[in-house]
Amino acid sequence: MSTFPKRPEELYEEVADHLGPEFGETRQACHDAMTKSTALRYLAHYSSAVFDFGLDALGDPPPPPDALPGTTRRDELKRLGRQLGFTVTTLDRSLQEARTGRLIRTVIQTEEGAVFCDSVVPSENVVGLVVDRSATEHREIPLASAPDVRAADQAVAELASTLRTQVRLPSLNPGGWESADLVEPVPSTDSAPEPFTTVLAGPGEDTERLLAACVRAARPDDLHLVAYCSQGELPVMVDHLDHPSLAPFFTQIAVESRRRFYQGFSRELGALAHRLNRTTSTALGGVLVRLVLDIEMGAIYFYRLGPGDYLVGVTIDQNRVVGADDRMAALALELR
């Protein structure tokens, strides 16, 4: 349960000079989101990586008139939002190769909390931040289940959908929260293929243990691919991309082509996580332990196991994003 004070008495709003009355409904929606979610500590709106306005419950006093620009905690958070705007734009271009749609939600979770960057429309993002050390202090808590992280994640996703309705656009269901309770098991079929496995590591007890764990975690229902990466290499990968129930997801790309993309992208995720960790280090702090790249068709997950070692998971079904994330969190807890 969140221990943060009630809202909205302590909310502080900062508005950019260029903002006009056309942002009135957007500002109100963001204010409502902060009022409703006591987990969120900071929430800001960006257009083309330019800061429009921000709300926070940091409790910091307004800067004095003679304060140097760029020296406050709020300035650090504004810089973080700008950097994330540029980063997600670059990532979005890279992810287009998989033909799973554009990047709509990014979750960067560290030992200290998490930052979220959700897309409203291309070049319009909302950025939220939460402080939550519960999964760090209590190792038995799966990272995806840290209570304030999950609550803030849902709040930012709901806000992005609300802002889309203001311009008469349907929700993109970021996080899969809207459909999480509606999903049904994948129907069984006698012709279902065995999981496709890629084992590049040499034989040994560790390889067998990792392979068995990945096979148990991956399934056609939600978590369609699981990989273990170490020092930039991909010793083990298991997937169900060939499952007949997933055939409709491959009308624009061949299974093997998407599989090759995930193999290459998995190797690169460690370096990406390191860069994102540096991006968030000042404003949030702590080692990056979880990363979610939520695209229109599913999500890619990164879970840190140790220095240079991490898990990668993939779902290509947006309705299964929450369930797949929970399975990845449980697997990471098992292997840590």
Rank of each mutant, 00 (worst) to 15 (best):
T3E: 15
P8K: 13
L11D: 11
H18Q: 15
L19F: 09
G20I: 07
E22C: 06
F23R: 10
E25S: 12
T26L: 14
R27F: 07
A29S: 14
A29Y: 06
C30D: 09
T35K: 10
K36I: 00
S37N: 12
T38D: 11
A44S: 14
S48D: 13
A49N: 04
D56V: 00
L58K: 02
G59T: 09
A67F: 12
A67R: 13
D75P: 01
G81Q: 05
Q83N: 13
G85V: 10
G85C: 11
F86E: 14
F86T: 06
V88S: 03
L95H: 02
E97D: 10
R105I: 00
I108Y: 01
T110H: 07
E111I: 06
E112N: 09
D118V: 03
E124H: 12
L129W: 00
V131S: 08
D132C: 01
D132R: 05
S134Q: 14
A146G: 10
D148N: 09
D148P: 03
D153K: 07
D153M: 02
A155W: 06
A157C: 15
L159C: 00
R164S: 01
G176Y: 12
G176A: 02
W177R: 07
S179M: 08
A180N: 03
D181Y: 02
D181H: 13
D181L: 11
V183E: 01
S188I: 08
T189H: 13
A192D: 12
A192W: 03
F196S: 14
V199F: 06
G202F: 03
G202A: 14
L210D: 06
L210A: 05
C214M: 09
R216S: 14
R216K: 14
A217C: 08
H224Q: 04
C229K: 04
V238P: 07
L241Q: 12
L241S: 06
H243S: 06
H243A: 10
A247D: 14
F249E: 08
F250G: 06
Q252H: 02
V255T: 06
V255K: 00
E256T: 05
R260G: 04
F265G: 00
L272K: 01
A273W: 09
R275C: 08
R275E: 03
N277S: 11
R278M: 08
R278G: 10
R290W: 09
I295C: 11
M297V: 04
Y303A: 15
Y303T: 05
R304K: 07
R304W: 01
G306M: 03
P307I: 08
D309V: 06
V312C: 15
D317I: 05
N319M: 12
R320Y: 09
V322D: 14
D326I: 02
M328R: 07
